[in-house]
Each structure stands twice: as C-alpha cells, then as structure tokens.
Amino acid sequence: MSVFGLVPVRVEVVQEGSRKSLRLRKGDRIDDLLEKLGINRETVLVRLNNKVCVEEEILREGDKVEIIKAISGG
C-alpha cells in the first residue's frame, strides 16, 4: 500500500502483438485502463483473461487484458 492509502494492481496488456505490464489503482475498471492508454472505448473490443467482456469490469492483480481494434479503414 502506498502512503496515500492506494493499493496498486498490476495487469498485463496485450495490444496489436505487443505486451506490457501496467500498474493501476485498485478498483480501476477496463474503461479507466483505456482512458489511461488514450483509447476510445467505442473503437475496441476487450478480452479479459481470454473472454470477451464489457468495459465495466474491475481489474484485479494478474489480469490479462487483450485490446482488439474494432474499427478499420479502407
């Protein structure tokens, strides 16, 4: 726990073939993660631990989040 009383949560994010580990606040949802990454939720689908889910899901320690681009051009 940080001095501000916040508990960090570490999640693995997979996007367009790249993987990264990100630290979020406890209670953060997928919406919050997308916001932090500058991604409009209207443009993506998300798999949480290999299952398609809604962006309201709360993220937990060790979760794997796969962000799939839902819009295309051309």
Binding site: E42, T43, V52, I68, K69, A70, I71, S72, G73, G74
Partner: peptide, 19 residues
Amino acid sequence: EKEVALYALLWDLGASFAE
C-alpha cells in the same frame, strides 16, 4: 461497427482485422 466486429469475433468468421 463495434457490434459487427463483436459478431465476427464471436462467430469466429476468420475475418482479417488489418487496416
């Protein structure tokens, strides 16, 4: 478009998501 993408994904249509 997001609903079409979800439909293609759930049905596993083998669609390309390349841009």
